[in-house]
């Protein structure tokens, strides 16, 4: 929207795009078995074009490791990072609260509760999509409850929003614990899934997250300018020609859909949706049409780096949700402090 910062934005987007591609290739190369980037490109090229001659002179196990073990996991990590960052931007933009993200609003817990229920009851009526559908329903119900709790006189109070999210999140955590208790022998499945992991990623998961991310990106870019104006408050945005109530509903549902699918595919991964929009807003300003794409790219890079660290660098594989919380928690404290001091750059 600003006249002079277009060039900076394009440069940053280009740089982030290149970094994302590089991060994908480099992390594919890393691991127990080190694979040269050239071989990776040839394997991918062969898979895309069906030209088997590209695989000459490459060890027989390499294509399997790249295509079936590493790439699904790496792409899932990148897409989930992008999805969580994207929903963070949307939640923060609509709820006018820089501390809002899928995790602090309790949405992730709601999705996790729904998904745990599906895992426990071994629901398979919807086939492959049972867990995501349950996660989505859990996320939406949580969103409605949190918003209802923090609404006074028809206005959503930013101060009580996070508090409501924490309250509902705590109740849901207790609910999840109860489900674990009921789960008995199956408890390990739920526990490991909850801590968040990309270890069991599949191409189906990649497609599911990718499709929902693409959908969400198109919807949010479509309403990007409306979202900017909605930051002025309901009365202003209504009288500037924005269908505030409708756009708010559509965007909250979209963000919750992406969150729910990310949670269903990988478990709870916190703080990406909080940290990334903050850093990016610092770089490109508050215009959501710029913030959305750069946040998605930065989220992809950040989560991919974190996952590669736990997969290929650390001596033992720390659950990714634990790692992001350990890094993100202190960051959250800093934002909170700055906000209290009124020195936040927002």
């Amino acid at each position: 929207m600003h006249r002079h910062s277009e060039k900076k934005f394009l440069l940053l987007t280009g740089a982030l795009l290149i970094c994302t591609v590089l991060a994908i290739i480099i992390s594919t190369a890393m691991g127990y078995m080190v694979i040269s980037p050239v071989d990776i490109l040839r394997v991918i090229g062969a898979a895309l074009t069906g030209d088997a001659s590209l695989l000459d002179s490459i060890e027989a196990t390499v294509p399997y490791v790249v295509m079936d073990v590493r790439l699904p996991r790496i792409l899932t990590a990148a897409l989930v990072g992008a999805g969580l960052a994207l929903s963070g931007v949307i939640y923060q933009g609509i709820l006018l609260n820089p501390l809002a993200d899928p995790y602090t609003l309790g949405i992730s817990s709601g999705a996790a509760f729904g998904a745990s229920l599906a895992l426990l009851a071994n629901v398979s009526m919807l086939g492959h999509f049972s867990t995501p559908v349950f996660a989505f329903v859990g996320a939406i119900l949580t969103l409605l409850l949190v918003m209802r709790l923090s609404t006074f006189n028809g206005q959503i109070s930013a101060q009580t929003l996070i508090l409501s999210g924490v309250i509902v999140g705590a109740i849901l955590s207790a609910g999840i614990s109860f489900l674990k208790y009921l789960a008995d022998e199956q408890v390990a499945i739920i526990i490991f899934w909850l801590m968040g992991s990309f270890a069991s990623s599949t191409w189906n998961g990649v497609l599911l997250v990718g499709a929902s991310l693409l959908f969400a990106m198109l919807v949010t870019l479509y309403y990007g300018r409306d979202l900017n104006i909605m930051s002025l408050g309901r009365r202003s945005s209504d009288t500037l020609g924005v269908e505030t109530a409708k756009v708010r509903k559509i965007l909250l549902l979209t963000a919750s859909l992406v969150t729910a699918i990310c949670v269903a595919v990988t478990g709870i991964i916190g703080f990406i949706g909080l940290i990334v929009p903050h850093l990016m807003r610092y770089l490109v300003g508050p215009d959501n049409r710029k913030l959305l794409p750069v946040s998605a790219l930065a989220g992809a890079i950040l989560l991919l780096l974190a996952d590669t660290m736990t997969r290929a660098v650390l001596p033992v594989e720390v659950p990714i949700g634990v790692l992001t919380a350990l890094i993100g928690g202190p960051f959250f404290c800093i934002i909170f402090r700055q906000k209290q001091k009124g020195k936040s750059y927002e």
Partner: peptide
């Protein structure tokens, strides 16, 4: 409408705020 209260949680510039008047 010129509302009584004016608050934006995020830091837009004055020019960006005025340009929002052109939204419709």
């Amino acid at each position: 409408l010129v509302p009584q209260e004016f608050d934006t949680g995020f830091g837009f510039t004055v020019e960006e705020i005025v340009l929002m008047g052109r939204h419709p």
